[in-house]
């Protein structure tokens, strides 16, 4: 590779330049290309858990948020096969929680909803789990609605890596995994969480919500009202 020529790979046939250390999704984003994702946020270290950003790199499936490209690598993302799998992942996320978009204040600003629209998810397909997840409204300024958690761990990473607090953690394994807060009572009010924390502003769905301001942004002015998520630059940091 010539020193003057920047390394590149192809994403669905388009040439994408990249710098050393960048992952496939970071390079794609920098080039204005969209790869569906939920747990990835350019401000945080990749987690690789949601698998929405799965691509085929030289014919092998991999998470594009953790995989670094190689020169000349052929990456496929927007294919029927991969999008079908992404849609199935989304459908599973929808049925595992209680996602009632019609009455959710995050509607229009929600990455899960926007990604489902992007990938033409027309129904949940699978049977709903309808888990019983009471909300935690103990904090005077913030509400935790666990019904919508997709276990992306962005709040965990933000609290730990930016706020230095460890307010949030994922507990349990497999289908029993769930979000908890760092207090014996299990209540957010009994942690050192504040509205100034980074963790208060990174939730891509409607779990961590500022109280008493829901629905104050009218339809038409919300993040994804005018353009789909694929045409909205860096949606993951919106609202931060």
């Amino acid at each position: 590779m010539s020193q003057n020529k920047q390394a590149s790979f192809t994403l669905d046939g388009k040439t994408i330049p990249y710098a050393e250390g960048q992952t496939i999704i970071q390079a794609a984003m920098a080039a204005g290309e969209y790869i569906p994702h939920l747990c990835f946020n350019p401000e945080f270290k990749p987690h690789g858990s949601c698998k929405l950003c799965t691509v085929k790199a030289n014919g092998r499936q991999t998470a594009s948020c953790t995989q670094q490209p190689q020169p000349g690598m052929v990456v496929e993302s927007d294919t029927t096969e991969i999008n079908d799998e992404r849609r199935a992942l989304l459908q599973m996320l929808f049925v595992e929680g209680n996602h009632f978009c019609p009455s959710c204040e995050k509607s229009g600003n929600c990455q899960l909803q926007a990604t489902a629209y992007e990938l033409n998810m027309m129904s949940p397909h699978f049977d709903q789990f309808f888990p019983d997840r009471p909300v935690d409204a103990s904090h005077p300024e913030y509400l935790l609605d666990f019904n919508r958690c997709i276990l992306c761990s962005l709040c965990v990473r933000a609290s730990r890596d930016v706020d230095g607090k460890n307010v949030f953690a994922l507990s349990g394994r497999g289908i029993k995994s769930h979000l908890i807060v760092n207090a014996k009572s299990g209540r957010l009010a009994d942690t050192d969480f504040t509205g100034y924390d980074k963790a208060a502003h990174v939730c891509p769905v409607g779990v961590i919500l500022k109280k008493r301001v829901g629905f104050t942004v009218p339809i038409g002015s919300r993040s994804f009202d005018e353009k789909p998520i694929s045409a909205t630059p860096h949606p993951t940091v919106k609202g931060a």
């Binding site: 009455s103 204040e105 909300v135 409204a137 008493r212």
Partner: peptide, 14 residues
């Protein structure tokens, strides 16, 4: 019951 009050005008209209 158990839902935040500001959600109510949007939810009950359903």
């Amino acid at each position: 019951q158990g839902r935040p009050y500001w959600e109510v005008p949007v939810m009950v209209q359903r």
